[in-house]
């Protein structure tokens, strides 16, 4: 996990996306809430954009 955080921090620096950090944290928390509250993570997208 530490290496992930380090890499992610480096990514934000390189991309100059610090402004994203607060939003990221909020979204991550919201996302975590969603993850905890549901079972499957299979996406029913017609075109998976990610």
């Amino acid at each position: 996990m530490m290496s992930f955080l380090k890499e992610f921090w480096a990514f934000l620096r390189v991309r100059k996306k610090f402004w994203l950090a607060p939003t990221l944290i909020a979204m991550a928390l919201l996302g975590a809430l969603i993850v905890l509250s549901q079972g499957s993570a299979v996406a029913p997208f017609i075109y998976t954009l990610f």
């Binding site: 992930f4 890499e7 979204m27 991550a28 919201l30 996302g31 975590a32 969603i34 993850v35 549901q38 993570a41 299979v42 996406a43 029913p44 997208f45 990610f50």
Partner: peptide, 19 residues
């Protein structure tokens, strides 16, 4: 709705693709 479905895939798996 799309966010609600996509984000768990990311937080569980795709964000940690290296691992």
């Amino acid at each position: 709705r799309s966010f609600r479905i996509a984000i768990p895939v990311w937080l569980r798996e795709k964000l940690f693709l290296k691992d």
